[in-house]
Design a protein around this nucleic acid. Structure first.
Lengths: 356, 356
DNA sequence: TTGTATGCGTTATCAG
DNA sequence: CTGATAACGCATACAA
């Protein structure tokens, strides 16, 4: 009942053609819906296909069309809600257009990114969407362009590549958050990121990831505008996990002039910061303010509800996929920017004891 | 500098063979590392390949090996952390073995699941991993088995399919959570799930999703063991989003004998429950207890910290992928069960006002 | 050990 | 409008 022909190997065009009593190419045309086929023959072929439960072999089809109807997506980590939401946007859009999504996680490592690119190219994906692990090292991505396949940059940009990109402009919201803190009396504002950088200390706004640089430029711009000196020791990377984040925070708290506010680069970092602060007996926002440069569903029910910057990340995913699809079609696709907004909640407040 | 041969079309085996001055098949063998090739010829071929920057066309390769080195993964929604973590486990394992992961989101809809299966089969994936949208309607998955490709069930099982599955045994932990509540005086315990079921009212332990059934059986078993009657009105599905969940909770709170504790089927539901309760001015756990049948990173810093059941979901993903890989190799792969544990935090407490 | 010839399932070309 | 026939790029049985 269930599978009408369980044993037989899948039917091919040849099988359908034979059963319909026509030539292979005629059958192929009727099935593909291109070329020209008489009404009568078409119906014969179509019903033969139906009877044989014919399904085209996409591999064979891809072989001589050159299009695999799949898009390769490279991100740091699907576990990160930021990426998983973007991925959902990409996936929905791609599938609606008849495209598959092949996924690669790099753990933000260049070697993995390189492997993924090769893998995808070998499989002849029609386009590659990538959230760059580093905008310094993008040579391997030229292979995509060289293979004349569309390359679309997700969230993180690299001008050098000359590729289409979809990003979120966070700097304004980051500046706004910073100013809000400054207006509340904060002078010592820390920035904590999970960025895997060689120099784990601040060395300018430029980092290996443009979205982090963007956050920094907003922060630093606002500080400078308010005449506040930037303390490199308050800008920290490599807050990968709970212990690393805890260590960074310990170090900061031991400073002669510790921060009164902490900006977490993304939601995961924010979570680790909140956990670390709580473990050390510090209350937010009474003892220290925390703002996340990324929002998440749980921010509304965390203790305290977390003030943060909300990104339209699903839409970014959709736009990225749409750009890729347009490029695949040979159409133009402009780079795009989305705006992020600051969502005020309760994790920030006035400075408790003025230190300077 | 960057791309040595930007314009040329990618080199093929024929190109390599010609340059190495050998036959096509010899080159093919040398490159593939099978067959038998003399040391000298091998080196010649390899360096020719290097010079031409040769990369095998995986599509062509797949065509006559029958193996595409890709695994199709079908889940309800990658946005759901439960799935995204499992997916990470699958992806890591697959890639380490040289396999790609193709992703499909179904939004828990059968039509999308059916489409995804067809899509995957047409692309000749080597195996399919699926988190069933429904264990009642699995006919479309027989196509995978009929194509003699491995099918591995992720989390949600369906005996009818006779497929290998990897699941989490939640019933014991669910029973434990329930008993804990009962010992704290709770008699009216509600269960809220996002399950998209036709009958939105309880109709027995069996539901369309085995993992939900498993939760229910733990809950109901513990209630019965303690001589507590089951009120079908306290078992609710379709808590899809914030508004739906709010409506369900409103309905429950209007009951003559409202629940004193709520069990949320997963983390997302728990989040919506907490938001709804807070919006209605109810304090957790003073006014009402909440336990999640799923844990998440934010549960530690939510207000209050959320008591929940912790699943080894990454490991489930890894095990699922390993099973798929073994089956692809023609090896046996047993179904597996992982244990979930109850993690006590602060969202549950004694019944405030005894009602019965 | 090496090369030749054929097949995988499609689409595309080009006579009829 | 139709049907042989040749690609696509690789693997492989078979012959040398």
């Amino acid at each position: 009942m269930i599978g009408s022909n369980s044993i037989r190997r899948p039917a091919t065009v040849a099988d359908v053609a034979r059963r319909a009593g026509v030539g292979k190419s005629t059958a192929s045309r009727a099935l593909g819906g291109y070329g020209a086929v008489s009404e009568e023959v078409r119906n014969r072929v179509l019903s033969a296909a139906e009877e044989l439960d014919y399904r085209p072999n996409e591999l064979a089809r891809s072989m001589n069309t050159g299009r695999s109807h799949s898009i390769g997506v490279i991100v740091g980590d699907v576990e990160n809600p930021y990426f998983s939401v973007a991925l959902r946007g990409i996936s929905d859009t791609a599938r609606a257009a008849g495209y598959d999504v092949i996924l690669a996680n790099t753990s933000e490592r260049l070697t993995e990114e390189r492997d993924a690119v090769r893998f995808f190219l070998d499989k002849r994906v029609d386009a590659v969407i990538v959230a760059l692990a580093s905008n310094y090292d993008t040579e391997h991505l030229h292979a995509v362009l060289d293979a004349s396949r569309p390359l679309v940059l997700l969230d993180r940009q690299a001008d050098e590549l000359g590729a289409v990109g979809v990003r979120v402009r966070i700097a304004p919201a980051a500046a706004q958050a910073t100013e809000m803190l400054v207006n509340l009396g904060h002078q010592r504002i820390a920035f904590i990121s999970a960025l895997k950088t060689d120099g784990d200390r601040f060395s300018g706004v430029e980092t290996a990831v443009s979205s982090v640089s963007d956050r920094l430029s907003g922060l630093i711009g606002a500080l400078q505008a308010n005449g506040i000196a930037i303390d490199p020791d308050l800008i920290r990377y490599l807050a990968i996990g709970e212990t690393e984040t805890g260590a960074i925070i310990d170090e900061m708290l031991r400073m002669a002039d510790p921060p009164t506010a902490m900006l977490a680069s993304d939601a995961t970092v924010a979570l680790n910061v909140l956990i670390a602060l709580r473990a050390r007996g510090l209350r937010v926002p009474q003892d220290i303010s925390v703002i996340a440069f990324d929002d998440s569903p749980w921010a509304r029910i965390s203790d305290p509800p977390l003030t943060g910057i909300t990104h339209p990340i699903y839409d970014v995913g959709v736009a990225t996929a749409k750009a890729a699809l347009r490029l695949i079609e040979g159409l133009a696709a402009p780079s795009q920017e989305f705006d992020a907004v600051l969502t005020i909640r309760e994790s920030h407040g006035e400075v408790r004891a003025s230190t300077g």
